[in-house]
Amino acid sequence: MRRILIIGATSAIAQAAARLWAARREALYLVGRDPARLESIAADLRIRGAARVDHAVMDATDIAAHAAVIERAASFLGGLDTVLIAHGTLSDQTACQESVARTLAEINLNGLSVVALLTLLGNRFEQQRSGTIAVICSVAGDRGRSSNYVYGSAKALVSAFLSGLRQRLHRTGVAVVTLKPGFVDTPMTAAFAKGVLWVAPARVAKGLVAAIDRGRPVAYLPGFWRPIMFLVRAIPERWFRTLKL
């Protein structure tokens, strides 16, 4: 039985992953903002087979609350084997361009709040010398694009941070997993028309759980995004700047 902490547990992708874990009888601790939704998700996961489930309410930007919530999770579960960080908002790029405050708020939530959590978790896992830290970043973090570079740069910050943390913890046996979904049909993307590259959260969750099982450093979800993003990254900046993406 794995002891798993999920931060941003009301996210559609995180819920789909939690169901796979519940079916495997893992123990889960859910952290999110909305107590009613957390309670209904916890009840669902218990019925689906989870060994134990509890939850705590926390806004991810409330940095002062992080340490206590991690502690509560660890004491409920009797230790931590896996942490999944899933919270995020798809920033409104145009609105951000008009407002410094908004831009920084987005970077704060999608970037800094994750960095703060990773700092605490990194030290904790380094000491226990085992376990897996996994974070949902995004293909959007692979390159800044005019349509969503505020969101993208926050995800890029986290990706780079994870890469460093992975090197640091490598010798301790702790796995650090960077998860990079492409287009996923979730509440976050409700307003978008869906084309062929879109997938359901359940599909992404399958890949996510497998990547965590294997301790893969970087997983594109689904895998077809790896070659696509390889090409996107390969375009020289002088041409890239002329594109509208």
Binding site: A12, S40, I41, A43, I47, R48
Partner: peptide
């Protein structure tokens, strides 16, 4: 379809 949670069993 997104209303796919179990409530009690």
């Amino acid at each position: 379809r997104a209303l796919d949670r179990f409530i009690a069993f």
